[in-house]
Amino acid sequence: MTSKWVGRGSPEGLLLGVALDALLGDPRRGHPVAAFGRAASALERRVYADSRARGVVFSAVLVCGAAGLGVVAEKAARGRAARAAVTAVATWAVLGGTSLGREGRRMAHLLENGDLDAARRRLPHLCARDPDGMDEKALARATVESVAENTSDAAVAPLLWGAVAGVPGLLAYRAINTLDAMVGYRDPRYLRFGWASARLDDAANWAPARLTGLLAVACAAPGGRAGRAWRALRRDGAAHPSPNAGRCEAAFAGALGVRLGGVNVYGGRVEERPELGDGRVPETGDIRRAVRLSTAVTLAAAAVAAVGAAALGAAVAASGRRG
């Protein structure tokens, strides 16, 4: 029976992992994702070349290695309680929803106190934009957009993959997302080498981003903005240059009653992003609202993941009995 469950999510483990993330957040030292990043950097130094083929090998080795570690961990866990415990630890290790909320609230606190210099220094913890010269509203918009986009990356996507593929799915997704953050850029060094990591991240986030948008619509309902969030998601979600980020940002824009998008600067490169939503320009007070919405979406995603994992497990068990 144990072998049939390998690679299937544990509903109890996923929910317990979400609770651990809410209580503990990310560890300040010895974070497993940081250890993976150091291993990836070491491998990059050995295999890097201005080549897509080398990038494919780089991504494949690391993602398959992470998934393989998950398979070993699940096979070593015998019994439902052990599987739940292993899943909980893996879920806690890969989730970043609590840390995302903390960063958002920290930015809100700095802007509420008028400390623009400190807010500019803090912004790189959330996104890769150049903060120099940003005023309060620009910083608020950047923070709201980052909270919206990263709700999918930090919480919804790992939970979805954990439900579908268990611990291997959790670890493989976090590996994919981390590699995209490390090498998935369009600069001269990584345009070719990072191509595979960027495309793999796009594929892994396709379903989670759309689920994030739908959950944002659902979670907007108590405030009466569900209809506006749905319209923004349908109308503007595909306008973003990213195949996934626009779905999250558009739904959040509608739910919060703000307008996202505009001019962004990355490493001196200016990009004009399409407008998402039809509300006002975000203000400092909208950051805390975005964080609360992100938390609600994360909890909703945890419920969806647990139900999905339970349904998948029941289907696998029924298939085994018929066989």
Rank of each mutant, 00 (worst) to 15 (best):
G17M: 13
L23N: 12
L23V: 14
G25C: 06
H31C: 07
V33R: 13
A34R: 12
A34C: 05
A35C: 10
A35P: 08
R38G: 06
A39R: 09
L43S: 11
E44M: 11
R45F: 02
R45I: 06
D50W: 14
D50N: 13
S59M: 14
V61R: 01
V61I: 11
V61N: 02
V61G: 01
V63A: 00
G65V: 07
G68N: 10
G70N: 10
G79S: 05
G79L: 05
A81R: 15
A88T: 02
V89Y: 03
W92D: 04
L95K: 11
G96S: 11
G97N: 02
G101E: 04
R102I: 11
H109I: 00
L116H: 03
R120A: 06
L123W: 04
D132A: 15
E136F: 04
K137D: 15
R141M: 05
R141D: 01
T151I: 04
V156P: 00
V156M: 07
P168W: 02
P168L: 08
A172G: 01
A181L: 10
A181M: 12
A181G: 15
R186M: 14
R189P: 05
L191Q: 13
G194R: 01
D201F: 06
N205Y: 11
R210W: 04
T212L: 00
L214P: 00
C219V: 05
A220P: 07
R231Q: 15
G237N: 02
H240G: 12
P243D: 13
N244E: 12
A251D: 02
G254M: 06
L256M: 11
G257W: 04
V265C: 12
V265P: 08
Y266T: 05
Y266C: 10
Y266Q: 08
R269G: 00
R273D: 11
G277M: 06
T284G: 08
I287K: 04
T298Y: 00
A305T: 04
A309S: 08
A314R: 15
V316F: 12
